[in-house]
């Protein structure tokens, strides 16, 4: 399948297949942004991958991307060329990206409280629920 390459914007490549839509929903996309989400593209690195292309250069919220799939690559394109590769740093704290799976956690009964997680270990990509201390690997 052909999707036009972009002149100015960012390309997020090598997203684990199936995560593209979720990651896009956290990126704080504005109505002026032209967005392409390519799902289940063939790839050499993975069997299948998702790709996001956004025609616009500005700050995007990449925290969710870093947490959900930190092996994805982010390239900034200007005049059709890659001018910068953005490294994905794992955020220390994420709000409303991950959900606590502990059935005894207060988040399972209390409506309308934010799901807050803190980075425990960047090496193993582990996050801890602020409420019940449950450790999860996103």
């Amino acid at each position: 399948m052909e999707v036009n390459s972009i002149e100015n914007g960012i390309v997020i490549d090598h997203i684990r297949a199936g995560l593209g839509r979720k990651i896009l929903s956290y990126m704080n996309i504005e109505s002026g942004d032209t967005v392409a989400l390519i799902m289940n593209a063939t790839s050499k690195k993975h069997a299948r991958k998702d790709i996001i292309k956004i025609e616009n250069i500005r700050e995007f919220d990449l925290a969710a991307l870093a947490v959900l799939d930190h092996t994805a690559t982010v390239n900034v394109i200007k005049q059709g060329k890659i001018v910068e590769k953005i490294n994905l740093d794992l955020p220390e704290k994420v709000v409303d990206v991950l959900r606590c799976k502990n059935p005894r956690c207060v988040t399972s009964v209390e409506p309308a409280i934010p799901q807050i997680f803190h980075l425990v270990s960047p090496e193993t990509v582990e996050y801890r629920c602020e409420y019940c201390d449950e450790i999860i690997k996103p």
Partner: peptide
Amino acid sequence: HPKEGSALV
């Protein structure tokens, strides 16, 4: 409270 993290909330 029986739920973990309730006191923090």
